[in-house]
Design a protein around this nucleic acid. Structure first.
Lengths: 174, 174
DNA sequence: CTAAATTTTCAGAAATAATTGAAAACAATG
DNA sequence: CATTGTTTTCAATTATTTCTGAAAATTTAG
């Protein structure tokens, strides 16, 4: 009976890791990174680099790079066990926190650079008086206005506490 | 003077196309697709496949595939000029509409599949009574709950009219 | 300081994704 | 139905990203 429950768990967990990994691709983050995240999100204990390598059958370099990347995102924490030399990794498990971390990172990667581009182009096209020039400038201005708005919204959302978000959602969905 | 204004415009526009294209990569859509989108978003008139090919110096196959993809997203419309045989493409220029279209598409690609995965894993791990099994199931449940929430939010946002969004934002940002 | 354990780097290999160019399919015209 | 203009497909190529495995660097312990 014990064994059977463990089997079912192991199977469900492996499915989760595989699928979450495949989804990572769609998401624009690489498969290994998503798999490690899934692995650690469902791990009872923090895991070492070697344990991750073994569980996912990946090389040391790959494991290392992606563990570090996840730490940089803020989705993993480094843990040192007393009396142990190697470092262990532990995932953030609170889904709302995961979400805000990802929101922050995506804002930084997707919104901020867009804002810069669009600002520059709006600036460069200011004062062109041909009809085409005016239309272009106006388009850039509108884009700039929108991206600015998106930037501020992302900041707010990333800072929200779970409770507040739920409250707001209730209004929006109710 | 006319020439100078045209030059400035052409330069600003090319910068926009190049940068928006580069950003597409970050975004998870391919460079050409983002470039075509930028090109047409700032075009005074609808453009044909050949005009797009020439403007961006890309092959017919590439132009064709990405134009069709943009039409599938709903970011371009096909236009037929009377008495003309070939088809022209025209971009959606309203930034809010662009946003809602992209939101819908990303929801479909990123949120819906995640929901399926997480539901399946929550289902498969229901009733496992070991402590690890319970923890896993609980994690999947929380993820499911969150992704469901995100899904509903995305639907709402994608349906919002611009005015309503601004109103909501005022509350949130004010 | 030396040795062992561990982390980090990186050049090359493998896998994946994007692009070309030409041929095939299709549509309209006379 | 033959011709011409246009769209669509796709095998081969090229570019980009990811991964490996081993060596180098760093850290800790004795």
């Amino acid at each position: 009976m014990k064994v059977k429950a463990d089997d079912r768990l192991e199977q469900a967990r492996e499915e989760f890791i595989a699928q979450w990994g495949a989804m990572g691709t769609q998401w624009g983050i690489n498969r290994t990174m998503a798999q490690i995240h899934a692995l650690l999100m469902t791990a009872a204990e923090p895991m070492s680099t070697d344990e991750v390598m073994e569980a996912l059958e990946i090389s040391r370099g790959n494991a290392h790079a992606n563990l570090k990347e996840l730490v940089a995102w803020g989705l993993l924490r480094v843990v040192v066990k007393k009396g142990e030399r190697r470092e262990y990794f532990e995932a953030e498990k609170d889904v709302w926190r995961i979400f805000t971390v990802v929101a922050r990172e995506r804002k930084r990667r997707e919104i901020d650079p867009a804002l810069e581009v669009v600002r520059k182009c709006a600036e460069e096209s200011r004062g062109i008086t041909t009809p085409e020039g005016r239309a272009f400038h106006e388009q850039m201005r509108q884009l700039e206005e929108f991206v600015e708005f998106a930037s501020k919204m992302a900041d707010r959302v990333a800072m929200m506490k779970h409770g507040f978000a739920i409250q707001m959602a209730a209004k929006l969905l109710g």
